[in-house]
């Protein structure tokens, strides 16, 4: 029976892949995508992407001959590269699930110089810019074609 969430093994493999995709960087103050809060977000929000993610993980498990997360890192690197070599919808979905949870994490968003909040209700300030830049365009002759009868 399909559950609404990934199985424990699937979740472990996804977490392992996430960490390979985006490892932590102490220097930049960035968590890895395998951070527990980020992977918990992936599990909780997977929704309609579940089937694709399962398909992509199953392909990886088939290559690995068992749980991917249990393999030694060097073997994981080789298999993940092979698994990623051909672009396909299930792979794109899995990649997106990781990226969309990573790049909305408070710590990540702040480290990239953005406020950790939704756009509404605060919005943003947009500077006017220099309207005198338009002066040469204002000075141009008309460009539209005249047509008979309007």
């Amino acid at each position: 029976m399909q559950t609404q969430f990934l199985t424990l093994d699937e979740a472990r493999d996804l977490r392992c892949l996430a960490g390979m995709m985006i490892p932590p960087s102490a220097e930049l103050g960035m968590p890895g995508a395998d951070d527990p809060a980020i992977t918990a977000d992936m599990q909780a929000s997977i929704g309609r992407d579940l089937e694709d993610v399962r398909t992509a993980l199953a392909e990886l498990v088939a290559l690995a001959g068992g749980p991917f997360a249990d393999l030694p890192p060097a073997r994981q690197d080789i298999l993940a590269a092979r698994w990623r070599a051909v672009e396909r919808p299930a792979l794109a979905t899995l990649r997106r699930v990781i990226l969309q949870c990573y790049y909305r994490d408070d710590r990540v968003v702040r480290a990239l110089g953005r406020e950790a909040r939704p756009p509404f209700p605060k919005g943003n300030v947009l500077e006017q810019g220099d309207w005198s830049l338009l002066d040469p365009v204002r000075a141009r002759p008309k460009m539209w074609r005249d047509v008979a009868g309007g």
Partner: peptide
């Protein structure tokens, strides 16, 4: 936005995996 940048750049091969 950040997510759109990451998703489209990963698909286009501009955003590597790893360090």
């Amino acid at each position: 936005g950040l997510v759109t940048e990451a998703v489209s750049s990963a698909a286009a091969g501009r955003l590597p995996w790893g360090a």
